[in-house]
Write a protein that binds this DNA or RNA. Structure first.
Length: 868
RNA sequence: GCGGGCGUGGCGGAACUGGCAGACGCAGCGGACUUAAAAUCCGCAGGCCGCAAGGCCGUGAGGGUUCGAGUCCCUCCGCCCGUACCA
C-alpha cells in the first residue's frame, strides 16, 4: 500500500506550464473539426477572483476540456469588463489612477485564473478599457447613428445632487444615492439613447426559438419587454368655461371595453399639460415638486398613496359628448409609459378605484358576471379587473351591452377608428436604452457639439477618441468635463470652436459585443466577418442569473443592431445559456453581534468559538458570500492549501450547477481526501505487473470491474453532456469504490485478467475525471506510464458488449408492495418471469389465502402480483 | 398583486418516459491498525415495533387516476426567486 502523498503545490504548476507549451487552449479557424464556442461571462477586474468566478469558470472549463477531447475545435477565451465606477472610487479614495488600478487588478486576477488551471486561450485576451477595443465600439456607434438606431433626447433621470451625476436605478437605494447618501432627484437631461425599442417585437419573438435557454430567463425578458395590446385615442378637452382647449389629449388603454365606465382622466405630474398649469398655479407646482421628490425607489412607490390634483380642464367622453370628465394630475400615472395619460375606470382598475374613492368620483360598473343582474353588480373595495373570463358581460354600456369584454374591446376600437380619434395600438414597456454617463472611466462617446453644425460625428479616421490620463478626482462631477483642454476641439465639419461630448458610455455597451470580438480580437474592424461566421454563435454561454435581463437583453439587441449595420451575420448571439447558482456560506456572529469571518471560527466541544479571542460564536443563516457579512472564502487560500483540483472538484460536487452551493470546510476536506485516495490507488495499480497481451478470457470479478468501468464511462459522458456534473462525480465515486474493492480482494497478487481490468479501469478513470481535475489526471497519466497529455487525448468510448447485461434483477411486488427480488435472463419470456416470481417464498407468504387476480410483468423492471 | 420555481433522511442531493425511494457525498456511530493520535481501511446507518425472522409507516398536507405515484390530476399549506402604480 502506497503512502505517498499527492502534492498539488509541486504538481499543478508543472502541468500548467506543459499545457501552455503544448498550446492546448489555442484556437484557430483552420481546423476541419466541428467548432464549439464556450464562453463564461467575463469578470470585472475588482482585484481578486471570488468563489462565484471559480464556479463559473470551472463549469466552462470542464465543458471546454470535454469538448476538446470529443474532437471539437474549441474556442474558450477570457477578457475583462474593465470600465466602471469602482476604478473611479479607488481613485477618489486611494488616489490611484483608474487605469493603473484596473490593469494591476487584471494582472493579479489573470495569475489567479492561471493557477486554477483553466484552459483559456489567452492569446485572445483583451480588456474593454483597451483603446484597441473601445475604438471599435465608437466606430459601431457611428454606424448605429447612420442606421437611425441612435437618438439624442431629453429624459428624466436619477440625479445625485452631491456627486453631480446620473445614477442607474440600481444605484438608488431607498431614494438616496448609494455613495453620497443624498436624496436623489428626478431631472431632465439630454442623453444619448440606443433605440432598443426598434427591436422590441423581434427581441420578444426571438425568445421562442431559444430552446436551450432557461425558461425563467425567457419569462423575465418577456415581462421586461412587456407587450400589451389595446388602443390609443384622444380626448377633446374643454376649459372651465366650456371653450375647447387647443390640442387633443392622447391616452393609451388596454381596456377600451370599459370606456363607458370612465369617470375621470389623469395625466402624469411630468405631463406637458401639468407643467403648463404649474407655471401659473402654485398648488399644482407644489404637487409636481412633491412627486418629483418622492424618488423612484420601489419602496417609495409602494408606500405612496394615490394622490392627485385637479387641473382646470374637462375631457369630453368620446362616446357621450354630453359627459365631461374631470382631469387630474395624478402621482400614479407614469410619463414614461404609453402617453403619460389615462382615462380612469374605477370599477375595473384597482388604482383608479383607490383614486376615485379618495376623491369621491363615481364608480360605474360596466362588466358584470352573467348570472348577476346588472343592478346587483356592485363594486366594494376591490375592482373587477378580469376581462378574459367567459362568464362576463358588458352592462351600462349602451350599444356594447350584452357583449363579452373581449368582443367589446374589438367593438370599441372599431368605433374609435370610425370616429377618427383612435386606433388599435401595441405598446411595450421596454424603453430606449439611455447610455450617457457623466463618468470618466468609460468609453468616450465619439461626437462633437458644434455651435454651427450641431451634433457632428467624430470622423472614423480620428478614432479612437481616447481618454486623457491627466485627470483629477478631487471634486464631484465628471473629470472629463472639467479637464482644461480635452473637450475643446475644432468642428470636423466647419472648423469652428466646438466641444467634445464629455459623457461616456454605460459599461453595459462594452459587454454587449465582446463575445463577437473574441472571434477576431486583433482585427482592424470590430469583427472579422469570416471569423465570426466560423465561431458564432456562442454554443454554450455560462453565467449568473443576475444578468437575466440587462446584459443578456442588451447583447441580443446589439447582435441585431450589428447585423443591420453589417458587422455580424446573426441575431441571436448565445445558442445555449446556462445560469449557475451562487456560492453560499454559513454566517457567524459574536454574541455582541459582530460578523466574524469563517477562518476565525473554531469548532470544539460541540460549539463554535473565536480562534483568537475565545468568544462564543453564533452560527447564522447560510447566505451569499459577501464582504459585509464576512462569510467569504478566498479562492487563493483554498488553492494554496488544497490545490486547484480539490477546489474544482468540490465546487462541482453535490449540488447541481444551477442551484446554490454551500461552501463547507468539511466538504472541501472530503474532496481533498478523494484526491489523495485516487492518487494512492493509481499509484498502486501502476506498480502492478500487467499481462503483455489482453487476456482472452475474464473471470467474473474482472468482468464485473470492466463492466463497472465502461458503464461509468457511458454515464459520466451523458452527465457531462447535460452539465450534470454532480451526477458525473457520483458515478466516478462509484467506480473508485468498485476499483478499491477489486484491488483489496486481489491483494498484492491479482490474476492477469484482474490486473488487466484494473489497469484499464485506472486509465478510463483518469480520462473521465480529467476535465474536472486536470492536474491530477496528468500526474496519474504519467504515473501509469503514458506519454503525452491527457488534455490532448481523445475521449474514450465504452465497449458496447460491456454495457449489455445478460441478466436483470427485477423487483416482485404483491399489490404494489415490494416483497422480493428475482434475477432473470435479460430476454426471458414473461410467462417464465411470472412463474419464477410466483414461486418465491415471500411472494407466496404475502398472497396467503387470497386469489391471484392478475400478474403484471414489465420486462426488465418489475413484476406486480395483484391479489384480492 | 402578478409571473416562475421548489418542498425527498441530521445535511447537500439521486431516482430515465409512472415501475425496487434515499445512489453518491458530508456529518454521525461501531470496529481494525497504533503506546496514543492523525492519516488510512472495514462495517452500520429513513422512522417505528421486534432478540430475530419479519412487519408496519414513509417523498409538505388532503383527495383522485392507476396493477403500481416522489413523478400525472385537483384542493390546500409553506419556502425561494423575479417583478410591480405598465393604464
Amino acid at each position: 500500500m502506497s503512502s505517498k502523498r499527492y502534492s498539488p503545490a509541486e504538481v499543478e504548476p508543472k502541468w500548467q506550464k506543459a499545457w501552455e507549451e503544448a498550446g492546448i487552449a489555442k484556437a484557430g479557424e483552420d481546423s476541419d473539426r466541428p467548432k464549439f464556442y464556450v464562453l463564461e461571462m467575463f469578470p470585472y477586474p475588482s482585484g481578486r477572483i471570488h468563489m462565484g468566478h471559480v464556479r463559473n469558470y470551472t463549469l466552462g472549463d470542464v465543458l471546454a476540456r470535454y469538448k476538446r477531447a470529443r474532437g471539437f475545435n474549441v474556442l474558450h477565451p477570457m477578457g475583462w469588463d474593465a470600465f466602471g465606477m469602482p476604478a473611479e472610487n479607488a481613485a477618489m479614495q486611494k488616489g490611484v489612477h483608474p487605469k493603473k488600478w484596473t490593469y494591476e487588478n487584471i494582472a493579479h486576477m489573470k495569475g489567479q485564473l492561471k493557477r486554477l488551471g483553466f484552459s483559456l486561450d489567452w492569446s485572445r485576451e483583451f480588456a474593454t478599457c483597451d483603446p484597441d477595443y473601445y475604438r471599435h465600439e465608437q466606430a459601431m456607434f457611428l454606424d448605429f447613428m447612420d442606421a437611425g438606431l441612435v437618438e439624442r433626447k431629453t429624459s428624466l433621470v436619477n440625479w445625485d445632487p452631491v456627486d453631480q451625476t446620473v445614477l442607474a436605478n440600481e444605484q438608488v437605494i431607498d431614494g438616496r444615492g448609494w455613495r453620497s447618501g443624498a436624496l436623489v432627484e428626478k431631472r431632465e437631461l439630454d442623453q444619448w439613447f440606443l433605440k432598443i425599442t426598434h427591436y422590441a417585437e423581434d427581441l420578444l419573438a426571438g425568445l421562442d426559438a431559444l430552446e436551450n435557454w432557461p425558461e425563467k430567463v425567457k419569462v423575465m425578458q418577456r415581462n421586461w419587454i412587456g407587450k400589451s395590446e389595446g388602443a390609443r385615442f384622444s380626448f377633446t378637452l374643454v376649459d372651465e368655461k366650456g371653450d375647447e382647449w387647443p390640442g387633443p389629449l392622447p391616452v393609451f388603454t388596454t381596456r377600451p371595453d370599459t370606456l363607458f365606465g370612465a369617470s375621470f382622466v389623469a395625466v402624469s405630474p411630468d405631463h406637458p399639460l401639468t407643467k403648463k398649469f404649474a407655471e401659473n398655479d402654485s398648488g399644482i407646482a407644489a404637487f409636481v415638486r412633491e412627486c418629483a421628490a418622492l424618488g423612484t425607489s420601489e419602496e417609495a412607490i409602494e408606500k405612496a398613496e394615490k394622490k392627485g390634483i385637479r387641473l382646470p380642464l374637462f375631457a369630453i367622453h368620446p362616446f357621450r359628448p354630453d359627459v365631461k370628465l374631470p382631469v387630474y394630475a395624478a402621482n400614479f400615472v407614469l410619463m414614461t409609459y404609453g402617453e403619460g395619460a389615462i382615462f380612469g375606470c374605477p370599477a375595473h382598475d384597482q388604482r383608479d378605484l383607490d383614486f376615485a374613492r379618495k376623491y369621491g368620483l363615481p364608480v360605474i360598473p360596466v362588466v358584470c358576471p352573467k348570472d348577476t343582474p346588472p343592478e346587483g353588480c356592485e363594486i366594494g373595495d376591490e375592482a373587477l379587473t378580469d376581462s378574459e373570463r367567459d362568464d362576463l358581460v358588458m352592462i351600462n354600456s349602451e350599444w356594447m351591452n350584452g357583449l363579452t369584454p373581449k368582443q367589446a374591446k374589438e367593438a370599441a376600437i372599431r368605433k374609435l377608428e370610425e370616429m377618427g380619434i383612435g386606433q388599435r395600438q401595441v405598446n411595450y414597456r421596454l424603453r430606449d436604452w439611455g447610455v450617457s454617463r457623466q463618468r470618466y472611466w468609460g468609453c468616450p462617446i465619439p461626437v462633437i457639439h458644434c455651435p454651427e453644425c450641431g451634433i457632428v460625428k467624430v470622423p472614423k479616421e480620428d478614432l479612437p477618441v481616447t481618454l486623457p490620463e491627466d485627470v483629477t478626482f478631487d471634486a464631484p462631477g465628471n473629470p472629463l468635463d472639467r479637464h482644461p483642454t480635452w473637450k475643446h476641439v475644432k468642428c470636423p465639419q466647419c472648423g469652428a470652436d466646438a466641444q467634445r461630448e464629455t459623457d461616456t458610455f454605460d459599461t453595459f455597451i462594452d459587454s454587449s459585443w465582446y463575445y463577437a470580438r473574441f472571434c477576431s480580437p486583433h482585427a482592424e474592424e470590430p469583427v472579422d466577418p469570416d471569423k465570426a461566421k466560423y465561431w458564432m454563435p456562442v454554443d454554450q454561454y455560462i453565467g449568473g442569473i443576475e444578468h437575466a435581463i440587462l446584459h443578456l437583453l442588451y447583447s441580443r439587441f446589439f447582435a441585431r443592431a450589428m447585423k443591420d449595420t453589417g458587422h455580424l451575420h446573426l441575431k441571436e448571439p448565445f445558442a445555449a445559456l446556462f445560469t449557475q447558482g451562487m456560492v453560499v456560506h454559513e454566517t457567524y456572529k459574536t454574541e455582541s453581534g459582530e460578523w466574524v469571518e469563517p477562518s476565525l471560527v473554531e469548532r470544539r466541544d460541540g460549539g463554535l468559538f473565536h480562534r483568537e479571542t475565545g468568544e462564543r460564536i453564533i452560527a447564522g443563516p447560510v447566505e451569499k458570500m459577501s464582504k459585509s457579512k464576512k462569510n467569504v472564502i478566498d479562492p487563493e487560500a483554498i488553492v494554496e492549501k488544497y490545490g486547484a483540483d480539490t477546489a474544482r472538484w468540490f465546487i462541482l460536487s453535490d449540488s447541481p450547477p444551477e442551484r446554490d452551493i454551500e461552501w463547507t470546510e468539511a466538504g472541501v476536506e472530503g474532496a481533498w481526501r478523494f484526491v489523495q485516495r485516487v492518487w494512492r490507488m493509481i499509484d498502486d495499480i501502476a506498480d502492478m505487473a500487467i499481462p503483455a497481451e489482453r487476456p482472452a478470457e475474464f473471470g467474473p470479478d474482472a468482468l464485473a470491474l470492466r463492466q463497472a468501468a465502461h458503464r461509468a464511462l457511458a454515464e459520466v459522458t451523458k452527465d457531462i453532456e447535460k452539465l450534470r456534473f454532480n451526477r458525473a462525480i457520483a458515478r466516478i465515486h462509484e467506480l473508485v469504490n468498485s476499483m478499491g474493492e477489486a484491488l483489496r480482494e486481489a491483494a498484492d497478487a491479482p490474476s492477469p485478467d484482474m490486473a488487466f481490468a484494473l489497469r484499464e479501469a485506472a486509465e478510463l478513470l483518469v480520462r473521465m475525471f480529467a476535465p474536472m481535475m486536470p492536474h491530477l489526471a496528468e500526474e496519474c497519466w504519467r504515473r501509469l506510464g503514458k506519454d503525452g497529455l491527457v488534455a490532448q487525448t481523445p475521449w474514450p468510448e465504452p465497449e458496447p458488449a460491456l454495457l449489455k447485461q445478460d441478466t436483470v434483477k427485477m423487483a416482485v411486488q404483491v399489490n404494489g408492495k415490494r416483497r422480493t427480488e428475482i434475477e432473470v435472463p435479460k430476454d426471458a419470456p414473461n410467462e417464465e418471469i411470472e412463474k419464477l416470481a410466483l414461486a418465491q417464498e415471500p411472494v407466496q407468504r404475502a398472497i396467503g389465502e387470497k386469489q391471484v387476480r392478475r400478474v403484471i410483468v414489465v420486462p426488465g423492471r418489475i413484476v406486480n402480483v395483484v391479489v384480492g
